[in-house]
């Protein structure tokens, strides 16, 4: 159990804190970007989280759901989320406007073990909405670039139009301190200049991986893990240096409602970040 409690409302962890939508705009047809600030300024500045943690967001009348925090703690004050319209809560979120109020609780979950990753090579592999939690890591690495060695990014999407933060990532390719490779399964625009193929076709592009000194962070749709894990094992990256962040149904975020239970652990307390060893050790993770 590695949760460090940092509650907004210590007397009642279920009590949502009002937060204001500062900016929102579409990233793709069904994904929107939300920038949020906790309304109480003191609480907004005191809100501490680590990369890979999540928060519960709520809309009055629609309910509450867990969302990965996509911003980095290295830029405090504002919280960012990439949200796909998929259910009741997200539909209600999409109907809101800038300056509207939502509820927020958190941060929850273990997050990525940043202290362990410092000084190492970082290989980020993401597909689709997997960008939501991993953008936090990427921005953190870039903001603290001298604390990490190589930073390698492999990002896959179905089509160019479905690549979340496409322009940002294309810009990142210009950076010399980042090895950034992008792929789409299918190019329906005929204007895509990057790789075409699934995200695993990007692996041959990365050279000279020093596996003992590499942490790989992976997030994507369930189908992606099997193939990506195979590639990472081929690279000889140790199983406990391959980290994944998983999605589960959650109604509380604090280990009470039971929905995210896997084996004898709760994704909200012991996860959502798990190692490849955890995946082998415990059933049902992926």
């Amino acid at each position: 159990m590695s949760v460090e409690k940092n509650e907004l409302n210590p007397n009642n962890p279920f009590l949502p804190e009002p937060a204001r939508i500062v900016r929102m705009y579409p990233l793709t047809d069904d994904v929107k970007f939300f920038q949020v600030r906790i309304a109480d300024m003191e609480k907004a500045l005191a809100f501490k989280y680590c990369v890979g943690q999540f928060a519960m967001l709520s809309v009055l009348g629609a309910g509450e759901a867990p969302f990965s925090i996509s911003s980095t703690p290295s830029r405090p004050g504002l919280l960012e989320f990439c949200i796909r319209k998929a259910g009741t809560v997200t539909e209600a979120l999409f109907k809101l406007k800038e300056n509207d109020l939502i509820g927020i609780r958190g941060p929850y979950g273990n997050g990525f073990p940043v202290e362990k990753i410092k000084g190492k090579d970082v290989l980020i592999v993401m597909g689709g909405l997997g960008v939501a939690p991993l953008r936090s890591v990427l921005l953190y690495c870039l903001d603290n670039r001298d604390q990490f060695r190589r930073v390698i990014l492999l990002h896959g999407a179905k089509k160019p139009s479905e690549m979340i933060f496409r322009e940002e990532f294309l810009d990142l390719k210009q950076r010399e301190d980042l090895e950034c490779y992008l792929a789409v399964d299918e190019d329906d625009t005929k204007e895509w200049k990057e790789n075409v193929g699934v995200v695993t076709t990007l692996f041959p592009k990365i050279n000279d991986i020093n596996p003992e000194n590499t942490f790989s962070l992976v997030c994507g749709p369930p189908v992606m893990y099997k193939f990506v894990l195979k590639e990472l094992v081929k690279l000889n990256i140790p199983k406990d240096q391959i980290l994944m962040t998983l999605e589960r149904r959650m109604k509380c975020g604090v280990g009470k409602c039971g929905h995210c239970a896997i084996d004898y652990i709760y994704t909200c307390l012991d996860g959502p970040v798990f190692t490849y060893w955890d995946i082998i050790h415990m059933r049902e993770l992926i």
Binding site: G87, T90, R249, E284
Partner: peptide, 11 residues
């Protein structure tokens, strides 16, 4: 019980 938004059901 284990169904998430979008319809993925883990059990």
């Amino acid at each position: 019980y284990s169904e998430v938004a979008g319809g993925e059901n883990f059990r």
